[in-house]
Design a protein around this nucleic acid. Structure first.
Length: 670
DNA sequence: CTAGGGTTAG
């Protein structure tokens, strides 16, 4: 049968043609009766003898198109005749079908076939081909189609621009954008969207990306595309990705019309840039002011992320209820965000319940969320067991899986296990260690006090150590008081990320701890000279679904005096029971009494006192802090958990501390 | 006939 088909490229398939099955039409109303199908089948044996008629041509094409839609490319190609000529629509269907999984090898065959049939100058099909090759990652082929298409419609330009932007080929994309202007093709909203995306992919240098976005932004503004909903939304997103909440908001505010996507982009901007409160506030505003903008899965993912950032369990539960009401719990990304939200809001059991409820439809992100969930509670062993269950269920780990499971080992002090996992990464799982993974190892060894081993790991790296690696080393130096090694880490860090205030603060802390006060002021001057400042310590607590936040030595809060009085009483009591204020953590050159007074003003202590006053006795007190939990506050909380008989859960930047009966779940290792 | 927002880590 195949022999009668004269097209050479089809012969390569050398597959016995199966007659089309009736079941093909089970999903949609039948286009053709079975009779027609067999008629096509017999005429297929000798296409040249069949008298072409308009009905059979369209039947042919319908047939092929519907096979394509079902992903049955093999059969579609076997049916593809030279006469009657396939139409543009047929080729479109074929090209689209090639982008489905396992169909890639057919791509060039289809391409060749359409050239033979004189469709190589069809700009519409060129667009589709460029798209196809872009999805295959073969930019050269995409570029080739572009070059050979003489009449370049704007679609053709945009398709290549999109392909380049998607492939992170920023330079090429932007030069194509400018080429368009030269060729007299005025950009449309698609052009701008893709060009903006290309700027983001731009480089590892954010300032360059930012300048480029601003440049295109100016272009957009001058050409009157500033209020186009698509373009403006892309702008909001681009500025968000570059960390510029201000610019995002400015564009968002300037929009004449908005839809759910524009709202979602702005909400995501806040959620991603550490402004969870603003994210929730904007979500509320959207619900109240724009009844046409119905939140969807993407919106809810960002909202859940914001709840997680705030550790707002009450809010998170309300959002969960809304998700259920809207039936959005069938969307896997939403469920994954729910797992992360519950874990980060201090309800690991609920996270696990949600995770258990999605058995059979978990993806790699679901597993990663659960692993990191156990990790931040210090349950290293359980995290490793979940990791092993994941492997057992046939899911391939991603680079993030290893960041999560190595991080879990690090929090739990599981050095041996972490080393074993790290070694298995490339060897067993085929995941090449990246800078982040080395950072995990440095953190793991560094926390455990094995700093020299950590430094040797960095020296032995075959890739360039990124800022996270040096940052981990610096963090370990802070814990173990290693000023000289910290200086070495900072030498690189101040080069790699000069605007990260945290590094300067850590170094100053290390010097202060060692009593090197001249160095302390030198680093502080350096910090200020770069226009940076120390991030103030801030803690918050949710009481009756309302957030209360405290900044260290917060005089603006009317309740602060009452809170400090309570703390003073507590501390007096505790001193009788053996508590010694850890004034070492106060890194100022002051006398003992002053230092003790400062200790009482720490935000996490204020939040703790507030929680003691305003919550019922059986309730767990849940506090969140923006920085690492202070050592003195840690021991005070242990005392309180014992003598006030309260369970206290504190989330700091890195992990959870669960205080109960005078013991913390971190076993003083954090 | 193309297109804009999203989950996990640090």
């Amino acid at each position: 049968m195949l022999a009668s088909c004269s097209h050479p490229s089809l012969l390569q398939l050398s597959l016995p043609p199966k007659p089309p099955q009736l079941q093909l039409y089970s999903h949609s109303p039948p286009l053709l009766s079975f009779k027609t199908v067999s008629c096509i089948n017999s005429s297929f044996q000798a296409p040249s003898q069949r008298a072409p008629s308009s009905t059979s041509t369209s039947s042919y094409n319908h047939m092929i198109q519907s096979l394509c839609k079902q992903g049955n490319l093999k059969q579609a190609l076997q049916l593809l005749p030279l006469e009657p000529k396939p139409t543009q629509r047929t080729y479109e269907a074929l090209i689209l079908a090639c982008t489905h999984r396992n169909a890639r090898p057919y791509g060039p065959i289809v391409h060749h076939h359409l050239i033979e049939n004189g469709f190589d100058q069809d700009p519409f099909l060129s667009t589709k081909l460029i798209d196809m090759y872009s999805q295959f990652g073969s930019l050269d082929n995409a570029r080739d189609v572009f070059d050979k298409t003489h009449v370049k419609t704007i679609f053709v330009w945009n398709a290549l621009l999109k392909a380049l932007a998607l492939a992170d080929a920023a330079e090429e994309a932007l030069s194509l954008f400018h080429e368009m202007g030269g060729a007299g093709v005025p950009p449309d909203s698609f052009t701008y969207s893709h060009a903006l995306k290309a700027c983001i992919a731009s480089s590892s240098r954010p300032s360059l990306a930012f300048d480029r976005v601003r440049q295109i932004h100016g272009h957009i503004y001058r050409h009157g595309f500033g209020s186009t909903i698509y373009v403006a939304t892309t702008l909001v997103d681009c500025y968000a990705k570059l960390g510029s909440v201000l610019y995002s908001r400015r564009v968002f505010d300037g929009m004449l019309a908005r839809n759910v996507v524009s709202w979602s982009a702005m909400i995501a901007c806040y959620a991603k840039n550490e402004r969870p409160l603003d994210a929730l506030e904007l979500f509320r505003e959207m619900m109240l002011r724009d009844p046409d903008a119905i939140p969807n899965a993407v919106t809810m993912v960002s909202v859940l992320q914001a709840c997680a950032g705030l550790a707002a369990l009450g809010q998170g539960r309300l959002v969960h209820a809304y998700v259920l009401r809207r039936g959005l719990d069938s969307i896997i990304t939403v469920v994954n965000a729910l797992i992360a939200m519950y874990a980060k809001c201090g309800s690991l059991e609920t996270a696990r319940r949600v995770f258990d409820g999605m058995i059979g439809r978990r993806d790699v992100v679901s597993w990663n969320s659960m692993i990191s969930g156990y990790g931040i509670y210090g349950f290293g062993g359980r995290a490793i067991r979940v990791f092993e269950a994941m492997i057992g269920s046939g899911i391939s780990p991603s680079p993030i899986t290893f960041v999560s499971v190595l991080g879990a080992c690090s929090h739990a002090g599981l050095v041996k296990e972490g080393k074993r996992l790290f070694e298995s990464m490339a060897l067993v799982h085929g995941v090449a260690p990246r800078s982040e993974h080395y950072a995990c190892m440095v953190d793991l060894l560094g926390r455990a006090g094995r700093l020299d081993e950590a430094a040797r790991i960095i020296e032995g790296m075959r890739i360039e150590p990124g800022p996270t690696v040096w940052g981990s080393l610096l963090g370990a130096c802070r814990i173990h008081g290693r000023a000289e090694l910290a200086e070495r880490a900072c030498a690189r860090l101040f080069e790699l990320e000069p605007m990260n205030a945290g590094n300067y603060v850590l170094l100053a802390d290390i010097y202060a701890d060692a009593g090197m006060w001249e160095e302390v002021s030198r680093v502080k001057r350096l910090l200020e000279s770069r226009g940076l400042q120390k991030m103030p310590g801030c803690s918050w607590i949710e009481v009756k679904k309302k957030m209360h936040s405290f900044v260290s030595v917060d005089e603006m809060n009317p309740q602060v005096e009452q809170l400090q009085a309570l703390l003073a009483r507590l501390v007096k009591d505790m001193k009788d029971k053996g508590y010694v204020p850890n004034t070492k953590v106060v890194l100022y050159d002051l006398d003992q009494e002053e230092k003790e007074r400062i200790l009482l003003g720490h935000s996490e202590k204020l939040a703790l006192a507030f929680g003691l006053i305003n919550s019922g006795h059986g309730e767990v007190i849940r506090i969140t802090k923006n920085l690492r939990l202070c050592e003195d506050c840690h021991s005070v909380t242990k005392f309180v958990s014992k003598f006030a008989k309260r369970e206290i859960l504190v989330r700091d930047v890195n992990r959870f501390h669960h205080f109960k009966d005078g013991v913390c779940s971190c076993l003083d290792y954090w």
